[in-house]
């Protein structure tokens, strides 16, 4: 078996809400291997988005270690983490989170502005990403001119345009109707199967979870016994 791409050991996250201490994650251990399509499930407040945010390097753990692609996130500064995110992580949000004043093309190009690629190279990368999500005919459209499903596919194109090590999706179908959700999940599945992209997805939806190869069930900050790791 290959080395894990994501390795989490004794990870805890504690939030301080006024005088109340909320333990969102409690000594969680986890391993994700290259090419996995992992689904994190669990009720609201179980800590799945917190776990995803920590793996994405947008949040810090209170305790424990996170190693992604051989690099320990705990030891990185804010700026190092930002550069690391740009290189290794493609993030897909529930609410799409496209920049409204930019076209689909420009939204997808945004992470590439942080690289040293030329304008021509950026255009090639964006076109490839838009082809993968099947939206080359919508490149000049603004987010308001797109349907929810199309917006999320643009968001996926933005997430993969830098060819990241892993794609992290936080309830990517949460704001979509069944048809659009299926389209988005097919795109993610295609990325996983054809391009061996490691995908980690948080979802409530059992239909969405069915696309994953591995499922984790979180409850109150710990993996439940029966859902600790189910390989489908």
């Amino acid at each position: 078996m290959s080395e894990p791409l994501i390795e989490i050991s004794a990870l805890s996250k504690v939030f301080q809400r006024d005088s109340v201490e909320v333990r969102a994650l409690d000594r969680v251990d986890m391993q994700v291997f290259p090419g996995d399509f992992v689904c994190l499930m669990g009720p609201s407040g179980s800590g799945k988005s917190t776990l995803l945010n920590i793996i994405a390097g947008v949040d810090r753990p209170s305790e424990g270690s996170v190693i992604v692609a051989g690099e320990s996130l705990n030891e990185m500064s804010e700026d190092e983490l930002a550069a690391w995110r740009n290189h290794h992580v493609g993030f897909v949000f529930q609410h799409f989170n496209l920049i409204p004043v930019l076209t689909a093309f420009e939204n997808v190009e945004l992470p590439l502005l942080l690289t040293s690629l030329s304008k021509k190279e950026r255009r090639e990368h964006v076109t490839t990403a838009m082809e993968l999500v099947g939206l080359t005919d919508r490149m000049d459209h603004y987010p308001r001119q797109l349907s929810g499903g199309q917006e999320q596919r643009v968001a996926i194109a933005r997430a993969i345009v830098t060819d990241p090590t892993c794609v992290l999706a936080d309830e990517p179908t949460g704001d979509l109707d069944a048809h659009s959700a299926r389209e988005v999940l097919e795109v993610l599945k295609g990325l996983n199967e054809q391009f061996k992209k490691t995908i980690m997805m948080v979802t409530h939806d059992p239909h969405a979870a069915a696309y994953a190869s591995t499922r984790y069930q979180l409850e109150k900050g710990v993996f439940s016994k029966e859902g600790a790791r189910q390989t489908v």
Partner: peptide
């Protein structure tokens, strides 16, 4: 504020 969060999630540094 939210868009700034998105930019940071995409890899924009504080100075940028």
């Amino acid at each position: 504020t939210r868009e700034i969060g998105i930019l940071k999630a995409l890899g924009f540094r504080r100075s940028q």
